[in-house]
Simulated assay, not measured.
Amino acid sequence: MNLDDLAAFAAVAEARSFRGAAYVRGVAASSLSDAVRRLERELDVRLLHRTTRSVTPTAAGQRLLERLTPALREVRGALDAINAEGESPVGSLRLNVPTIVARVLLPPLIGPFLARHPGIRLEVVAEDRLIDVLAAGFDAGVRYDEHLEADMISVRLGPVTQRFAVAGTPAYLERHGVPAHPADLVRHSCIGHRFASGLVAQWSFERGSEVINVAPGSRLLASTLDLELQAALDGVGLIYSFADYLAEPLADGRLVEVLTDWSTAFPGPRLYYADRRQLPAPLRAFVAFLRERHG
């Protein structure tokens, strides 16, 4: 019996979708459908219920999946162990990261990492919605402390701390005044950010024991950082974003930071992954690379 067909069935049954499993495995959905049909013919039993809207395991399919999953994990572990014995790991590494991490923190890391490990193929998916990265077929994710799951292992990916900054152009501040308190923002034109979930980001401030969350009226609401930054540079209003992202226009004077005494540092992002006995070789190499850079 073809091991690839068994792995294809497991991928479809776990994803509850031929298309979703095909995306994770990087193959055509039709090839997975052929593999499952071939397996069902060989076993002479239906393994999946298929409708136009869903794919679910039959009772026999669920029993097979429960026995198959740990067996396939052992096979992958054995192959990874052999891979680890080589001088240079090979294989794919899939990461799910927030857009700010992809925009600011990952670029200085990717070139040196791939140069050191020419046998690794890296895929980075940047999005701000919170998903189960393992169920979605990723090897690891990048999150901030408040979104880290307790049963995961994490390693520092970027700076120890980051902070948010509010900024506007000198011309905008001259016309509208410099806010001295977060409450003053209600009188300003603000550039808001909408997450993929549909939620609009609040602007959070902290000074001493005082914490203030502001939902400023947004003259512009966007879901892309670059659009928000360009609007701020064009004088549309004040922007609230990661200070790292605004570093260049703040340094050259195109933007001026305000409310600096209300800007509080928070822990930087971390790479997190499942506690497994045998990590895939590409992920192990990336973890070692991060620990070497950040100590």
Rank of each mutant, 00 (worst) to 15 (best):
R207W: 07
R163D: 06
A281H: 03
A81W: 10
L72F: 03
P282V: 01
R270F: 00
S209G: 04
A232G: 12
S189C: 11
S209E: 14
V211N: 01
G26P: 07
L220F: 07
V155I: 04
A150K: 03
A135Q: 14
G168C: 10
P216I: 08
D151R: 13
R219H: 11
G237P: 05
R94W: 01
P118H: 10
L199Q: 07
V24W: 02
G295Y: 09
R94E: 00
A222C: 11
A196R: 14
G198E: 12
T264C: 05
G77P: 01
A150G: 02
R175W: 08
R116D: 04
A13G: 11
D34M: 14
A180Y: 00
I153Q: 06
A71Q: 07
R129S: 09
R254Q: 10
R143G: 05
A274S: 10
L72N: 07
W203F: 15
A231L: 04
D226P: 00
S223H: 15
P107D: 02
Q278W: 03
G198I: 13
E42G: 13
E228C: 12
Q62N: 05
E292Q: 12
H176C: 13
G235C: 07
A165Y: 00
V186N: 12
I82R: 14
T58H: 15
L220M: 14
F289R: 02
G253P: 09
R175A: 14
G20R: 06
P112E: 02
R270W: 01
P269I: 04
D275A: 13
S88V: 15
D252V: 01
W203P: 06
A71C: 07
I82Y: 07
G168W: 09
